[in-house]
């Protein structure tokens, strides 16, 4: 049976959605037995999707820096179906709170002015992504094929979606599987 390869990544997010993915528990084994192969994911600790590409790409988190933008575009290129999971990836989510302030205000507050900061410094290394003026949802940067909202999405939603895709159907999330909080 041909393997269905999955690559996932997290961008501007809290990792909660990947926790929810792990929360599928023994059903992860079931998915693997059904032919799923997890390639590059934060869980397998592989950074880049395989050269030959994957079937399903999963993005958790919003697009907050130029690095996130690049990663999202790269994964889009490497996958056939792209899923945005969690409110940050789907809507922009909680991280869009910073959209109400300028980049300078956010960095100053975060690195210099928090009550516990002493002699703070705004990091400037080239290795770090640069904040975009506004946080965006993944769909604002690349085409997204399927959405699983939730903060975090229930493990059942992720499982149902993957199971439906494996069966060659378009998943429809309804009832308890569709939630925004």
């Amino acid at each position: 049976m041909a393997k269905v390869k999955i690559a996932s990544t997290w961008l501007e997010a809290c990792s909660g959605c990947h926790m929810s993915l792990l929360d599928m528990d023994e059903r992860i084994v079931e998915l693997i037995q059904a032919g799923v192969e997890f390639t590059s994911t934060p869980i397998t600790d592989l950074k880049h999707p395989p050269e030959e590409g994957v079937d399903i790409g999963i993005i958790e988190g919003a697009i907050g820096t130029d690095l996130h933008e690049e990663e999202a575009k790269h994964l889009r290129k490497k996958c056939k179906i792209l899923i945005a999971i969690g409110d940050c990836a789907v809507f922009g989510g909680i991280v869009t709170m910073r959209n109400y302030f300028s980049r300078e205000e956010v960095l100053t507050r975060g690195y210099l002015e928090t009550e516990s900061t002493k002699d703070g410094k705004i990091p400037t290394s080239d290795e770090l992504g640069k904040l975009l003026p506004k946080v965006k949802a993944v769909k604002d940067i690349v085409k997204v094929d399927f959405y699983i909202p939730g903060c975090p999405p229930p493990a059942d939603s992720i499982y149902t979606a993957l199971k439906e895709l494996l069966g060659g159907r378009v998943p429809v999330l309804k009832g308890d599987l569709l939630k925004y909080d």
Partner: peptide, 18 residues
């Protein structure tokens, strides 16, 4: 929110006005 659920709004068709 309930209406969003009822009509299966799983993402924002238009980017919010921010």
């Amino acid at each position: 929110q309930n209406m969003g659920y009822r009509y299966g709004i799983d993402h924002f068709a238009f980017s919010p006005y921010q």
